[in-house]
C-alpha cells in the first residue's frame, strides 16, 4: 500500500523512486481519466487514493498527462531531468504548476520542529528553525537547543543542568 503520502501547499503529493505526483483537489473537474485508465494507481475508493507502486513510472506519467486540469501534475525526483522535459509532457509541473519546480527538497524537508518539555528539566527544541535571542537571529537547520525552564541557569537562556541542584519541578 502507498506509504509516501505527504501534504504540500494546496494538496498532497505521492512519490515513487522516479517521480512525484501532485494532487490538487480544488481544481479537479472529475473528468475521470485517471481512474478509468489506471485504477491500480488512482482508486478514489481507497485511502490514500493514489498508490504509486500500482504501476510503472512510464504508465503513471502517461495517465497524469491526460488530466485536463492541473489537479494531477508530476515531476522527476531528479531535478536535472526536469530541465529537459518538453511541452508534450502536458502535466509536468513546469508547464502546469511552475511554483512547484525546485520545491521537492522543501516539501520533503517540511518536518515539524520538535519541542519537548522534559520532566522537571529544560525544553529541548529540534529541527529547522530560526532562533531569536536578543538582537541576534540564528538560522538553525537540523539542530538542537536546550532552553532553561527553572530560571537559575548560569548560561541563560540555555540549560546548564542547575535545575537538578535546586530541585526544580515543573
Amino acid at each position: 500500500m502507498e506509504k509516501d503520502e505527504k501534504h504540500f501547499s494546496g494538496g498532497k503529493r505521492y512519490r515513487n523512486k522516479d517521480i512525484t505526483v501532485y494532487w490538487k483537489p480544488s481544481t479537479c473537474i472529475h473528468a475521470s481519466y485517471c481512474y478509468r485508465e489506471l485504477i491500480e494507481v488512482f482508486d478514489p475508493s481507497r485511502r490514500p487514493w493514489v498508490d504509486m507502486e500500482g504501476s510503472t513510472t512510464e504508465k503513471i506519467i502517461e495517465v497524469v498527462n491526460l488530466c485536463p486540469t492541473d489537479a494531477l501534475t508530476w515531476k522527476y525526483n531528479d531535478e536535472a531531468l526536469n530541465e529537459d522535459v518538453r511541452a508534450d509532457q502536458y502535466n509536468h509541473v513546469k508547464f502546469r504548476r511552475p511554483e512547484l519546480i525546485g520545491s521537492i527538497n522543501d516539501t520533503v524537508e517540511e518536518t515539524p520542529v520538535s519541542v519537548k518539555v522534559m520532566i522537571d528539566g529544560p525544553v529541548v527544541i529540534k529541527g529547522d528553525f530560526d532562533f531569536i535571542n536578543g538582537t541576534t537571529r540564528k538560522e538553525v537547520r537540523d539542530g538542537m537547543i536546550s532552553i532553561c525552564r527553572c530560571g537559575v541557569s548560569d548560561h541563560q537562556p540555555f540549560c546548564d543542568g542547575r535545575h537538578r541542584k535546586i530541585g526544580f519541578t515543573g
Partner: peptide
C-alpha cells in the same frame, strides 16, 4: 543540502 531547508518555526527568547 541545508541551504534548501526553510525554517519550520521561529523560536524567540
Amino acid at each position: 543540502e541545508n541551504k534548501n531547508k526553510k525554517p519550520q518555526a521561529v523560536v524567540e527568547i
